[in-house]
């Protein structure tokens, strides 16, 4: 029997496997640029998919951050609760949107909440698998970490300039920094 060449058409009509679909989605994230496919494939293999109903919470502000999320379909809204508990909308992300990625590097508390804005499917990479794969490819792994930090710093830069525009005078900024310095 030659089972590899003799493909029964009706059987192979199953379409692409989840692994291949995950791989396609992950390759497009900037952190995986120039990373060998075999390494991304491991992320595709360990990643988990999850479907969310509209308005379902992905994570809540203040809960421990352990995973990064890639939107496969649908949209996700990021919002923050101000001290009075009002929701302040920050951003709506579309398919291809990648968020929560700093959780891959260290545990912290989510500074904001994420909620499905429509029925959505997310691909989830947890920190443990992220690290386990990272250490297998030390050089490439370091490159990925660099990209993560660069992505974060780019966002921080835009936040800072936004902040500068809305704060009047250098004195209040000074105040802001002193608190930061004392907390440790």
């Amino acid at each position: 029997m030659s089972f590899i060449t003799d493909r029964d058409e009706s059987d192979s009509a199953a379409g692409r496997s989840e692994l291949v679909e995950n791989l396609e989605a992950l390759r497009r994230i900037p952190i995986f640029r120039d990373i060998p496919l075999e390494m991304i494939k491991l992320y595709a293999y360990t990643a988990r998919r999850q479907a969310y109903r509209s308005d379902e919470l992905v994570f809540r502000q203040g809960s421990p951050a352990r995973e990064a999320f890639l939107i496969l379909s649908g949209t996700v809204r990021l919002w923050m609760a101000d001290p009075e508990g009002h929701q302040v909308d920050l951003q709506v992300l579309d398919p291809g949107g990648f968020f929560g990625y700093m959780a891959l590097l260290a545990e912290y508390e989510w500074p904001l909440s994420a909620q499905a804005a429509s029925p959505a499917e997310l691909l989830i990479v947890d920190r443990r698998s992220f690290r386990k794969i990272l250490v297998r490819y030390p050089e490439k792994g370091f490159q990925i970490v660099e990209r993560l930090v660069q992505m974060r710093m780019a966002r921080m830069k835009s936040h800072m300039s936004l902040l500068m525009r809305h704060i009047d005078g250098a004195s209040s900024l000074d105040e802001l920094y002193r608190i930061d310095a004392l907390s440790r």
Binding site: R16, E18, Y45
Partner: peptide, 10 residues
């Protein structure tokens, strides 16, 4: 086991 998928027929 996401490395492959099966069809309806199967």
């Amino acid at each position: 086991h996401k490395m492959t998928a099966v069809s309806r027929h199967f």
